[in-house]
Simulated scan of single mutants.
Amino acid sequence: MTQLINALGFWNTSATRHTPVEDVQGIFSGSLVAALGLYVLASAGLLTGSTAGIAFLLHYAFGINFGLAFFLLNLPFFYLSWKRLGVAFTMKTFIAIGLTSLLTSLQPNVMSIATIHPAWAALLGGLLLGFGLLALYRHRASLGGVGILGIYMQERFGIRAGLVQMAVDLCVLAAAFFVTTPPVVFYSVLGAVVLNLFLTINHRADRYVAL
Rank of each mutant, 00 (worst) to 15 (best):
A119G: 14
I97Q: 04
I116G: 00
Y137Q: 02
L103M: 14
L73H: 01
L133V: 09
Y79K: 11
F78R: 03
G86M: 06
A69Q: 05
A121V: 06
T93A: 07
F77M: 05
H139A: 09
L103G: 02
K83G: 00
L103S: 03
L123M: 14
S105Q: 13
F62N: 08
Y137M: 10
R138A: 09
L99T: 03
A61H: 12
H139F: 08
M91H: 07
L134N: 10
N74W: 00
G86L: 07
L73V: 07
Y60A: 01
L133N: 03
I113F: 15
L129Q: 09
M111N: 09
N109L: 14
S101V: 07
L99Y: 06
L102R: 07
S101H: 11
S105K: 08
F70P: 11
L134F: 02
A96P: 05
H117F: 11
S112Q: 14
H139G: 05
G86D: 03
T90C: 08
L75A: 11
K83T: 15
V87S: 13
M91Y: 05
G86F: 09
A61K: 12
L136A: 03
F66K: 06
T90Y: 00
L103Q: 03
A88K: 14
T104R: 10
S112G: 12
V87G: 07
I64F: 14
K83W: 12
A69M: 11
F131I: 11
L129C: 09
A121D: 04
L72V: 13
L72N: 02
F70G: 05
Y137K: 02
I116Q: 04
N109R: 12
S101L: 08
L124C: 05
F131C: 11
G132N: 01
